[in-house]
Design a protein around this nucleic acid. Structure first.
Lengths: 196, 196
DNA sequence: TGGATATTGGGACTATCGTTCAGGTAATTT
DNA sequence: AAATTACCTGAACGATAGTCCCAATATCCA
């Protein structure tokens, strides 16, 4: 049985013992996805990555879907944080924003390449499984909610273009350099991002 | 053994008999991906979808990877054709382009939703497996090669934004309506697409 | 026509999968 | 301290996976 189904001793925050395991399992899952993709996620590979017995993963996450949902929810926060930084750069750095954002994208496609792939794989999984969609859409909603209403259209263009650049960058043999991305970002900001 | 590994009777183009089967198997694979995703692709599901015995798929495609590569190569042409239509609309319809493109995207996210998902799943698969990348990048290269050099930056913004809109549309509960997409496309064209 | 070869198709072998279960340990409450 | 409950874990079950093997068949060149 899942620890959430029964048995909470009194207050809510008392089941601290298992929460640490849950977090470890989720982190291990993310590492597995970075390395082998969503296809490589099994109870056994995750348990092995976390260095715990197999049955422990099935105890905290009754089904694989449940594990993936939790992983996506956890990852969504990180994704949102990343894009939030971009927006912050646009607002504070003004003209330098293009260079800053280009560097962030280059970083996501270079050193963080595995992580970026993992995020988009979970994203696509959400497209196919309705139960994952709220989790996947959350970070988009969060971002959208923090721009003024009259900028919503421009903001959507900005987000879509960033998504597209990241995805297209994933199938390049060598990671794109920030210098190559900068003119594209500049053109994007010139129309869509300047007023946000 | 794969038909390519041994046994060719003299010349190369003599193995016409099996080519039809190969095509059938690839088409069945694409249908399986549309319905169940890349994760649903197994020798057995593909064979069942094509109405042929299981061993026939392993005969023509020794490994599952080989089958996926062939499927991606076949599908790449269709994807390129679709985006080419969009560009054509921009050039010929002028001011109406936004509405036309919005309709195309709404169509890709509505009736063609399964197909669109399949394309992006194969796309992400290419990000993870270098052997698939040339096939995935081919259509992008083809598109990029047919715009003037001074428009390249604007064109990249355009393509990236389209990609992003499609992906984000995939995780919406109900497919976005063309009317909702049109202002976004219009804003995009206003800056990036008008000169291409 | 006859032999060589490409192709088909049914079945089977082995590995791994998700999930379950039963018995144990550690913490928490009374 | 006793009991209750969360938590842990090794083993196992049934299902399904990839791939292989071998006999049967269709096709083609000589």
């Amino acid at each position: 049985m899942s620890p959430r189904s029964g048995a909470r001793s009194g207050v809510d925050g008392r089941k601290v013992r298992g929460e640490k395991r849950r977090a470890e399992i989720i982190e291990a899952t993310l590492r597995v996805i970075e390395r082998d993709g969503v296809a490589g996620v099994t109870h056994r590979t995750v348990a092995s990555e976390a260095g715990i017995p197999t049955a422990s993963t099935t105890y905290h996450f009754a089904t694989l879907d449940e594990l993936l949902i939790a992983t996506l929810l956890t990852g969504a926060k990180d994704m949102a944080t990343e894009v939030y930084w971009m927006i912050d750069h646009v607002r504070s750095h003004g003209r330098r924003a293009a260079a800053e954002i280009a560097a962030l994208i280059a970083h996501a496609l270079g050193p963080q390449r595995g992580r970026t792939m993992a995020e988009y794989e979970l994203y696509l999984l959400a497209a196919r499984r309705p139960s994952l969609r709220p989790a996947a859409r959350r970070w988009l909603d969060v971002l959208t909610s923090m721009v003024r209403h009259d900028d919503e259209v421009a903001f959507r263009v900005f987000l879509a273009a960033i998504d597209g650049l990241l995805i297209q960058g994933l199938i390049d043999d060598e990671s794109p350099r920030a210098a190559d991305l900068e003119p594209v970002i500049a053109a994007l900001l010139r129309s869509a991002g300047q007023s946000s």
